[in-house]
Amino acid sequence: MFKKNSESRTAYMMIAPAVLIILGLGIFPVGYSIWLSFNKVNPLSFDLDFIGLENYAQILSNAKFWQSIGITLYFCAVSIALQIVLGIMVSMLLNQKFVGRGLVRALILLPWAVPTIVNANLWNWILNSNYGILNRLLMKAGLISEGIPWLSDGKLALNMIILADTWRMLPLVVIMLLAGLQTVSQSVLEATIVDGAGRWKRFWCVYFPVLKPMLLVILVLRTIQAIRVFDIIYVLTKGGPANKTMVISFYSYFETFNYLNYGKGSAIAMIIAVLTLILALVYFRMLKTND
């Protein structure tokens, strides 16, 4: 068998290329970014001028930053709640026996295959206030007489972005939950049916405990994904109308490339990284306890 010493040497050899890449392209840039966030960066020469915590002080005292935090939280909370509730409903539905179930299960994954930017363009077209299909259908049904400006109304825009995001991401949640449902014990299920337990009770007593670990994973993973939402905002609203869809990632991008404030952009990015780090630690813990 192998000796301990040679085992760890083999291990280091095997991980060396990957570790070098992650070191050079991950850890070093993070360190550099932290350093940048303490500086004022000249946008042309990239010369640095150390200003300590000034960038952070400016950000934390800016109402726009807190607004973007609020919008990001709203986006995360509503889109994830919606996707989890709909995900449970659809996966329970697709777990029933019906004709063509295999085909439906294959089709359900398709929206997830649509690239994010294409999805954004697609919903831009669907939600167009003058010619979009949604307004056309609503008009045809006689529900409205004039097109609704879905994306330029401050109250609607963020919710429409959540709708577009949900269309694309729901399949992921459904597929993961369906995998979880396969592990529901048939004998337990039959026992509750014999007991005459109602649907609702059956869900909470049989399905929910099985789905719980998967739901927790989805919750954390989707939160981390939702925090980074950028692409869809870039195409649909660019943070508008009146900053009503200015999520934190877009805010950082805007500070960096519109105002050429690289130091400040870095500082916002580091705040996002810390939030992600906390969630990643939670996730790591969770996987441990799942074992």
Binding site: S33, G265, S266, A269, M270, I272, T276
Partner: peptide, 10 residues
């Protein structure tokens, strides 16, 4: 898991 925006500036 790190959002791409975090490393964009560096």
């Amino acid at each position: 898991l790190l959002p791409p925006i975090s490393l964009l500036v560096p």
